[in-house]
């Protein structure tokens, strides 16, 4: 097994009642790179993601994080090892303020999360750091807003800020740019690039063009199998990839390949 890899999956299989959703996926995410997992609708990208983060239990196969076998761990334990994920639908705590959202991630390190007798003012010590993080992602000055009041694009940014607060070694982003306008896509791309300077990023995307100049390696998934892997230039010319995208009835995927969203 590759020791320089952050995440390795070996023959990962997931069956749902006799139906094979994920079929022998071998994935190697090298440390310090941005790795994109792409594919047309129904490629089981998110299923793979759920398997790696242990939100789903694989039927067979192994998952390693920094060479350590994490196949049998609980999802919260995986997060504690430094592998933190985001979700496809924006995952904020809607009725908490931006500051509280980020602080939830920070407060774990205090080790007082079970202390029901302690005042919450003890958490104020984390405020400066939380504000700093919000500032870094461009949400400075709105820390007292409630997350639900943010426009969609900003919610995704808040989500990334919360994830970054844990200083995860490996960050998994599930379609961080889904449903976004061009301007927001630029903002998020920038943010991901900045975050990836000191960590590994694995992101799921639907649009090939979006990840073209962002990722170092692209793995293309179709119907639960890996059909191609490599840098954008190679992958986008791969006939199997073109067929997978064009072969679908979903016109958006076809458009994506032609770079309409770029």
């Amino acid at each position: 097994m590759d020791k320089s890899a952050a995440i390795v999956t070996e023959s990962l299989v997931k069956d749902f009642k006799g139906f094979r959703a994920v079929d022998n996926v071998d994935l190697t995410v090298r440390r310090g790179t941005i790795h994109a997992l792409i594919g047309p609708n129904g490629a089981r990208k998110t299923t793979c993601f759920n398997l790696i983060t242990k939100f789903l239990q694989p039927t067979s196969g192994r998952i390693y994080l920094n060479g350590e076998d994490i196949t049998r761990l609980a999802p919260a334990s995986v997060a504690r090892l430094g592998l933190v994920r985001s979700f496809q639908i924006s995952a904020t705590f809607p009725h908490l303020t931006l500051l509280e959202n980020v602080r939830i991630a920070l407060q774990r390190q205090l080790g007082t999360s079970f202390h029901f007798w302690r005042s919450e003012t003890s958490l104020d010590a984390l405020n400066a750091r939380a504000i700093e993080i919000l500032h870094d992602v461009g949400l400075g000055g709105s820390e007292n807003l409630v997350a639900a009041e943010l426009p969609y694009g900003r919610k995704r940014v808040l989500e990334i800020a919360t994830t970054l607060a844990l200083e995860p070694e490996v960050m998994l982003l599930d379609e961080p740019m889904a449903g976004m306008g061009r301007e927001d896509i630029g903002r998020i791309s920038q943010l991901i690039r900045k975050a990836a300077k000191s960590r590994t990023v694995l992101m799921v995307e639907h649009n090939l063009s979006v990840v073209a100049d962002l990722s170092d390696t692209i793995t293309v998934l179709a119907r639960g199998r890996v059909i191609a892997e490599g840098p954008y230039a190679a992958v986008s010319q791969n006939p199997q990839v073109i067929e997978a995208y064009m072969g679908t009835t979903d016109t958006e995927s076809g458009a994506a390949l032609r770079g309409a969203h770029g």
């Binding site: 997060a79 979700f87 995952a91 939830i104």
Partner: peptide, 18 residues
Amino acid sequence: QVLKAIRENEPRAISLGY
């Protein structure tokens, strides 16, 4: 605070390591 986070979005609370 953690309880509120769980009420608001349980999968997210798990993904933050709780």
